[in-house]
C-alpha cells in the first residue's frame, strides 16, 4: 500500500435517477481522503470506462436501484476487462441477497447494501483497491 490517495469514479448508468446514495458515498469517500471523480447521472458503460482510463482511476463505484444490477454490473466488469483495465467494480444500492452470489461470480468486487456504515464503505473500497495492486 502507498500513501497516494485512492482515485475512484462514481456513476449511475442508464435512466435511474436515485442519486442520494451515490452522493452520500461520494462525500464519505471525499471526507476519508479519496479523490472522487463524480460523474453523476445518466452515464453509459463506455463513458465510465473512458473516464477510468483517462483519469487513471483505481476503482469504479456504481449505484443501482431499480433491479438493473444483474444486467449492468457484469457489463461494466466485462467492459473494463476488455479495455485492459484491472480495476475493481464496487456496487452500491438495493441488491437482493439472492443476487449477490451471481454478481460476485461475474467479477463484482464488493456490494454495499442499504445501511452500510461510512467506515465499512471506506474500508471496503480500500480493501478492494489494495487486493488488486
Amino acid at each position: 500500500m502507498t500513501d497516494t490517495p485512492i482515485r475512484i469514479v462514481l456513476a449511475k448508468i442508464g435512466f435511474d435517477g436515485h442519486d442520494r446514495g451515490l452522493r452520500m458515498v461520494a462525500r464519505i469517500l471525499r471526507d476519508a481522503g479519496c479523490e472522487v471523480i463524480y460523474l453523476g447521472l445518466r452515464q453509459t458503460t463506455e463513458n465510465v470506462v473512458a473516464v477510468v482510463e483517462q483519469e487513471d482511476a483505481d476503482a469504479v463505484g456504481l449505484s443501482m436501484h431499480n433491479a438493473q444490477h444483474l444486467t449492468l454490473a457484469p457489463k461494466m466488469v466485462e467492459s473494463l476487462r476488455s479495455a485492459g483495465l484491472d480495476v475493481p467494480v464496487i456496487l452500491g444500492g438495493v441488491v437482493p441477497d439472492q443476487d449477490i452470489a451471481a454478481l460476485m461470480e461475474s467479477g463484482v468486487a464488493v456490494i454495499l447494501g442499504p445501511g452500510t456504515s461510512a467506515e465499512d464503505v471506506v474500508r471496503s473500497v480500500r480493501e478492494a483497491v489494495t487486493s488488486r495492486s
Partner: peptide
C-alpha cells in the same frame, strides 16, 4: 424507468429496466 424518462422499451438504455420498477 424508460416510461418515466419518455423513452421506449427498445431504447438502448432500457436494457434491464423494462417492467422492473
Amino acid at each position: 424507468m424508460p416510461t418515466l424518462m419518455g423513452r421506449d422499451s427498445d431504447h438502448e438504455w432500457a436494457l434491464g429496466e423494462v417492467g422492473r420498477a
